[in-house]
Design a protein around this nucleic acid. Structure first.
Lengths: 338, 338
DNA sequence: TTGTACGCGTTATCAG
DNA sequence: CTGATAACGCGTACAA
């Protein structure tokens, strides 16, 4: 691999001048500039990124932490983020935490070791106390996940309110025994949803019932298992709030194909995220729409602005609107006995 | 940020000794080792990655090129790759090419600029001539995509054979006018599929009909458009081969919800990849199953082995088995008039 | 067992 | 306008 030194020699000039040409700086004769460009082409010279990083203390790289990519919500999120980052000349490192506190911490180390300039956290299972110290090494921005007690920029929607609305909708359809289905260890966001769920129940004189809750469902096959669990062990359940369209889809698939249950009459189901699948299912799935792309774009923009103008921007909170999309999985013809 | 120098000073030793401790090398008294570890903790010292990279000429990072993440096949692929790479201590940079020759080239530059040690290409729209020169800068491995003329390791299944089998199946179901639906600019892999499709047709005395082909469909909403195109402009089409479960799903959704067409009797449809959605659709979608995780794992393994033992391993080709999953979208009750 | 000194490839400073 | 030199932080021959 040719170095800047090789180019300088071939052009009969100094490293400094070559460097000037590389970085489009003024004060170089056109003639010499051409000679250097010629030399660079002849040698197939490309500046060494590691050396640049060491010198400039910048990596032009960001890390995106998220639970897992198979969840299409995060697939969409990172797709948009990568595109946006790419426009600014930044690389994106994917970091799947699988909701593990340790993995989340390990990936945050990328900031300390200067492998990335900044971090986007779309996964958040650790406490603020543990995340905060990393701020000394570079900016962190939350996306989707959020914590009220933190002091950094956050881009998200109101999950509490969304869960509240979805639950009220189920209650309005006459559901009286609603199962709360969530996935994996509690993230900060999932706590918010639970609050909204509980608040809605209380408006109808109900309270959160642990025995109707399921906390291990995160994909389609889990959704299928959830159905059997409800059928066999929770027969009085007549509605399901689930934090995922995939889980909802698996549940509905199993209910209709293996047991001839009628959705929504036997069981009303709401999902979350408005994935394609929620529209394509028969019956289509009532869900919460989020402006994924806008949030992704904004997040990258906020982070990169902080990188470009350190300290110039105060932490800000951007709350994006959501929308309850009522579809067939909750439109009951007969209402349950009150 | 503390440097190795700071640690050395605090411990009253030299940089070299500190370096030895960091890299778990022998020849350091236990007592001094402890003193250094103490100093590192006190200072919150972490080795600077940029400096290490420059010194060692290694980045412990790989780039994965793929068309787009919203296609769940690639989501699954990169999920598995990231996990595997992470086990080996490697970071993964996502590179979405959107089937653009230029973007693909730009991302290959990461190899030249030493931002990554190696590259996995699951996107391949450029010619071998243009990719080959990058091999001088580090190893490249193909995954999913492949070219017979290249001389590097490839991990993939036999797309020609898979397309052949799917098409024969459609023909056996009595389809006589099969539309070939593909997405975007031709990758090398999509050419293989087309060959298999054409070969199957010829066994039934048919030939590829350009006027029945659609080459712009890559997601659910494209699939919906495809249905209307067939309905309005290609009414004699009775079967569809599509390279994507998403397209198949969109097509089926639109056919059944907007027009009361009966799938498969009015139109038989095969997808590709065995995404969850192909199982969940009503009717379920006949598709090709690929061992995504195995391919992803193998790909990462092959690349990393090449990084650990440069030149030791001869390029190899790993062809994984596929499977035609016949589901309801092609199980016709009545066969077309022969 | 420990320390000295050099170099990895760039860029910024300063002198000419 | 151009070039010598130092510095970024680390690892490693080599010497002690």
């Amino acid at each position: 691999m040719a170095t800047i030194e090789d180019v300088a020699k071939l052009a009969g000039l100094s490293r400094t001048t070559v460097s000037r040409v590389i970085n489009d700086q003024p004060y170089v004769t056109d003639e010499k500039r051409q000679r250097i460009i010629q030399a660079m082409n002849d040698l197939g010279y490309v500046p060494n990124s590691s050396a640049r990083r060491l010198r400039s203390q910048k990596t032009e790289t960001i890390a995106v932490l998220l639970p897992r990519l198979t969840n299409p919500f995060f697939g969409n999120l990172i797709e948009a983020m990568e595109e946006k980052a790419s426009e600014w000349g930044y690389q994106v490192i994917v970091c799947q935490t699988h909701d593990s506190k340790k993995k989340e911490m390990d990936y945050l180390q990328l900031l300390k070791t200067k492998q990335v300039d900044g971090v986007i956290m779309a996964s958040l299972v650790n406490d603020w106390e543990d995340v905060k110290p990393f701020l000394e090494c570079g900016p962190i921005v939350f996306c989707n996940e959020y914590m009220d007690e933190s002091s950094i920029s956050m881009i998200h929607m109101d999950h509490k309110q969304a869960a509240y609305e979805a639950t009220i909708h189920l209650l309005e359809q006459g559901c009286t025994h609603i199962s709360y289905v969530s996935g994996g260890p509690e993230s900060h966001l999932s706590k918010k949803r639970k609050e909204g769920f509980t608040e809605a129940l209380s408006e109808y004189g109900l309270s959160f019932q642990e025995d109707l809750a399921i906390d291990w469902a995160m994909d389609v096959s889990d959704g299928q298992k959830v159905f059997h669990m409800i059928k066999d062990e929770l027969p009085h359940v007549d509605g399901v709030f689930t934090g995922s369209d995939e889980v909802a889809a698996g549940l509905i698939y199993e209910a209709t194909s293996s047991s001839n249950w009628v959705i929504p009459d036997d069981l009303a189901v709401v999902g979350f995220d408005n994935q394609m699948i929620s529209l394509l299912m028969v019956p289509s799935v009532t869900t919460i729409e989020q402006p994924v792309k806008q949030m992704a774009d904004k997040t990258v923009e906020v982070l990169i602005q902080q990188l470009l103008h350190p300290g110039a921007l105060a932490p800000n909170r951007y709350v994006y609107p959501h929308q309850l999309l009522v579809r067939n999985s909750t439109k009951r013809k007969k209402l349950s006995i009150q």
